[in-house]
Design a protein around this nucleic acid. Sequence first.
DNA 1: GCGATAAGAGAAAACCTTTTCCCAACCAAG
DNA 2: CTTGGTTGGGAAAAGGTTTTCTCTTATCGC
Lengths: 349, 349
Amino acid sequence: MSSDASPAPAKTPVTLRQVAASAGVSVATASKALNGQGRMTAETRERIRETAQRLGFRPNSLAQSLLRRRSFTVGLLTNDTYGRFSLPLMAGVSDALVDAGVSVFLCNVEDDMRLAQLHVEAMLDKRVDGIIATGKRIDRHLPVDLANLRIPVIYAFTQPDPDAVGFESDDAGGARLAVEHFCRLGRKRIAHVTGPASFAVVHERARAYREVLAEHGLPVAEPLLGAWSEAWGHEAVAKLFDGKAGGAGAPDAVFCGNDQIARGVIDALRERGIGVPDDVGVIGFDNWEIVAEATRPPLTSVDMNLSALGREAGLALLSLVGGQPAAPGIRKLPCRLVVRQSCGRPPGG
Amino acid sequence: MSSDASPAPAKTPVTLRQVAASAGVSVATASKALNGQGRMTAETRERIRETAQRLGFRPNSLAQSLLRRRSFTVGLLTNDTYGRFSLPLMAGVSDALVDAGVSVFLCNVEDDMRLAQLHVEAMLDKRVDGIIATGKRIDRHLPVDLANLRIPVIYAFTQPDPDAVGFESDDAGGARLAVEHFCRLGRKRIAHVTGPASFAVVHERARAYREVLAEHGLPVAEPLLGAWSEAWGHEAVAKLFDGKAGGAGAPDAVFCGNDQIARGVIDALRERGIGVPDDVGVIGFDNWEIVAEATRPPLTSVDMNLSALGREAGLALLSLVGGQPAAPGIRKLPCRLVVRQSCGRPPGG
DNA sequence: GCGATAAGAGAAAACCTTTTCCCAACCAAG
DNA sequence: CTTGGTTGGGAAAAGGTTTTCTCTTATCGC
């Protein structure tokens, strides 16, 4: 075919000036025509629109940003590149922003102050409209101070500065969901195996665990604190069940601090010939699907709704950038229990 | 303290004009002083530098970009938000670019053509210097055509357009590493359990597996194709060992297509009372640390060096943006065997 | 002391778009 | 025929930086 209908990939982008020249008007008129501003004959407006279309004109976002003092760009700062927490969160953020035409700079700072500073300065130089800070631990600060930045900052799943807006998952609420589910199923001796004492969430979840058991008049066993690993799940089973074979004191349910511990617990129980969920129910935390679904039986787990959390954070930043004031403080978003087969069915069901 | 030494977070960024006014020179001179251009007395230059420092001047990157027609910004397009492949890759990319002052727009497009188009246009409008395309499958295209974009595009861990530059891991080489390691350890009957036939890497690794066995004069069992899951690892063990108890035909080594399959294989072997690595050695693929290290015994696995791959891709894009030509085609980067305890030690060791 | 040269610094254009202000023309009313 | 209002469209400034060109002044050799 000699007539090529493709939009002719120009070497250099088409400018408004070229559109104006081609349509035989001034750049001012062209701009107004394309933005629906100003007054002109419908015919002129349409002619300019068609010309722009034909030439494949797209306004230079840099020039617009310079003028509007708004870059339609935000920075996402994280120290959790490899982790699985920041990923769904990032997806949620991006999802909330893409429809507003806002792009996201991803900045992984590890735990390196120098790198963090470098990235923040780069973002500031590029005139990001705002920053979302996130990390792998809800109870730790990023290795950089974002307090006096003259652009809005939102914290998600990481410790906010005072007077800042932060979003977190409601860990205590999530723990309640799990333990109450066990109670509803008629479990009586519910144990809690969780991570190290140095994590704030460990205490928060343990507190909720104790509260729910007390509310139901059930015995409260001291939570077992260890590591966030399968190996610790194994060990914990030994502690819980040794010397109590078939026993009076042995738990009939284990609420675990994460899915890896739960996996270790289930594997250890199977090795001891203890049936899951018939003899002992197990619930995990994080709902890390690749683990929860590979567990035998598939693991019931608390999902922190991180993607929704990211969305909320993105929308909050957008509103802050738009000039809406926001009360500082931490907003907790509810968790959700994903029921699979490791916790058993209700007696009547 | 009444004297506040902090750099006074200005409500609005300080401009070069303000620096110039404060130093009593023109903007032109100020610009030249700060960039080491032009001719002026060392004293003038120093005075301007100090003024800029004192005022906390940082050049507006938007204005610079507009003028230089270079935004020091690249787009990273992926359809693998939740996956573990793109993450180390992204970290490598970011790492390679941060030192050049280049920031990365993260764009997750899932498998949505409309979303992909939207993101690409947003990036083009924002005048990114180039794009890195990555994905969850090495043998699939992203849901968008990046072929005629008038900015450089590099493909990493995803199928490149013809005439484009792509980086991939050398899967065949990785498979060789694993199988040759088994050979060195004196294993004679090496099985291969891997993923579905629809994946190109399955065939590539299987071919290498066959080649190495042939080179060593060992019997080649037909690779077992299934799913990328633990469950399939279990099943495969049944297929491999049923009816061959302690047997002549049973394998003494299993090379697995990923770490999850390997995990399933090891668990199934333990359930059968078959010792790992004493009776059967196991090697996985991907070196997904959280799985490989939780396996009992810890899993030897092939690492695709995705972070290095990301670095290479980033550097290649940088050089393309800088005007250096690059020959189109696919560059394969070597894998690396991470030896843990699931494969056994050499007879002499 | 004079022309040539170099040094130091500023004016202005360029990058691209948006917006405000202004101008010319046209129409209707007085 | 003037006046006042409206309509269609353009000129110019703004946003912040870089770079080229130009201008002034000082220095040097003769």
